[in-house]
Design a protein around this nucleic acid. Sequence first.
DNA 1: GTTTGTTTGTCTATTCAATAAACAAAGTTG
DNA 2: CAACTTTGTTTATTGAATAGACAAACAAAC
Lengths: 387, 387
Amino acid sequence: MTTTTGDQALIKRMNTAIVLEAILRAEPLSRAKISEMTGLNKATVSSLVQDLIDNRLVREIGTGVSSGGRKPVLLEFIDTAGYAVGIDLGVNYLRGVLTDLRGAIVAEKKLALATPDPDNTFNVLRPFIQSLIDEAPDGPFGVVGIGVGVPGLVDRGGSVLYAPNMGWRDVPLKEALDRTFGIPVLIDNEANVGALGEQKFGIGRGISNMIYVSVGIGIGTGLILHRSLYKGASGFSGELGHLSVEAHGKPCRCGNRGCWELYASEQALLDRAGELGYPQDLDALLAAAESGDAKLRKLLEEIGEYLGVGISNIVNVFNPNAVIIGNRMSKAQPWLEEAVRRTVEQRALGFHLRNVHLLYAELGDRSAVMGAAELAIAAFFDRLKAA
Amino acid sequence: MTTTTGDQALIKRMNTAIVLEAILRAEPLSRAKISEMTGLNKATVSSLVQDLIDNRLVREIGTGVSSGGRKPVLLEFIDTAGYAVGIDLGVNYLRGVLTDLRGAIVAEKKLALATPDPDNTFNVLRPFIQSLIDEAPDGPFGVVGIGVGVPGLVDRGGSVLYAPNMGWRDVPLKEALDRTFGIPVLIDNEANVGALGEQKFGIGRGISNMIYVSVGIGIGTGLILHRSLYKGASGFSGELGHLSVEAHGKPCRCGNRGCWELYASEQALLDRAGELGYPQDLDALLAAAESGDAKLRKLLEEIGEYLGVGISNIVNVFNPNAVIIGNRMSKAQPWLEEAVRRTVEQRALGFHLRNVHLLYAELGDRSAVMGAAELAIAAFFDRLKAA
DNA sequence: GTTTGTTTGTCTATTCAATAAACAAAGTTG
DNA sequence: CAACTTTGTTTATTGAATAGACAAACAAAC
């Protein structure tokens, strides 16, 4: 069985985490305020804060204004106690950030990727990550981890089981990076890290139940339920792009028929635009729509309707607080918004509509890379709580 | 903020729960074995067990066989320390059980319901519940709660917001029963309690991630994720019956089009059988299929295929360990099974298929009523842990 | 300037749960 | 019977949280 049994060390870890979270949430903060907010005794807070200061996670930044008595000593979290690397591994690009522990970007790089095969990718990725690590200022914890978002199925062990657009199968990405860098490496699906990015740093800040819909060449989804990323039985889930919305529709390479992404993705738009003689380029199409091309606007509206069909399903299934449309198609927001909203309002159950917001990614093409960094940051905090 | 801070009482509650769960899982059990299983010190276990004995939840039942030393004193959970009432409130029937704390049925009743309007239902339901309570033997905790499953949307406050088949809107069911009986009342959707019933007592015992598909007149679903019932933002979710599987299909009264339940429910079967001149009765149809009616078998196969379409979606979205088909249509298992399996294998993603089992409810028409009782039992144990 | 009351943060003594170690009781095995 | 095992209790110790006392620092009223 070996359940985690309770002892005094557990109490201390829990309460330390509570104190740290209070500081993170509302800094700068005095010990007295923390005691008041958390319900912990003043003496307890003092002792735990001292530990945090000794561990270089928190520091005193001088006194605040008095409210009729002794001045409070204000505390703040030391954002720069450590740094995290976030990587967005795309089919033909590599995007990376170095952030501090609060997610502020310290350095950012982008690189074109010639061929996506695993060997070439490794050869480019390794020096790319190293160059980000080299940018990290000194700090007590150094670089605390590397998070990577990948366009494919990732298992719990950090292996990429299947990434069709990159031609990968069973690539032990985490293992390879673990060995090279010797710091914690976290791998997850692109849509999952995108969801995390928007939930932590973007438009979805603090929302408990939200679905991030990554609309690019295909459609991927990241499910945040009860404030944390939902993974299914095998660690991968949320393939809502392959939700069938036309039981007898077009066959999909996944084996199913009428998959949502066949009707509502960037690829669907490009295909249909191609049939009408337009160039196969999203930016060009959006520029044309901008300049008033009615046929194109109509086409975008139809794509929006199909997005709305799938989103209605999502709303009925998950009853989330928000659905966030992200990735490349979020650029088309002005031409999609109205059709999506209208379709969802028509189709989703009334009771579910009450609390749901239809949002568009705020971080743009940074959703994934920021979420990847957050993976590493969250893992660092988890280690603190555990040890 | 008021996070639950850690103190020694919390530890004691946690460890007491661990000890109790160990006994529940593997009784009869000695103190020494519990210590070994849980990692808790022998002295700690002795002390906690004494508390449980004092609280009349556990008792010594004599000595076991020695393995070369002093004989162990075996402990067991006192199932009959308390009792729970479970109610399955149907459109035209009322089903109830009285169970002990382990879910063993002590008494069971069924009743036809003439008219489902709220007033009449209350007038029948109250004495029905009272008669079950009256059956409860004496025990230190008496009847610890009443769980009710309802065919409709239930909010967190236990009000039935909308139950179309019963014609209910905003009926404060929990409040009404609370006042009458003065013991904890838990209300939830029929599919949710069905899921709970199968997960606790039926074919889904111990499965972490499972989806229960209640196929009756409509289709309802109960989502058990990470071992617990998933509720969405507003407390109701899992309306997978209204997942659109034909974006431009038949209009549904919910406002959407092509909803799954229009193609795969008992009603869908009855409608199509009616067109072919069959009687509108499930049992009659199944009897005909049994006696070899080929046209009917073909029809059931088509229903099975549509069930498979929706289940493929479920598998792709949730990557669960199991999908359980329950409620009335589970009786049609022999005629559906093959078509469902074939369709899911064709349509669901290969990686997701690896760990998923397609199962049929084991408790038959008792899934819901047993799950309702479990609601009350689980709430009782939660109270123990909290206080 | 003095007094009064407030606020902050530390210190001290106490409580309580878990634990290791010692121990007694009750058993097996040769 | 002697030697060893197993079970469950007792005892002394550890450590985390807490209440309450306390000193320092301050504002506001007089």
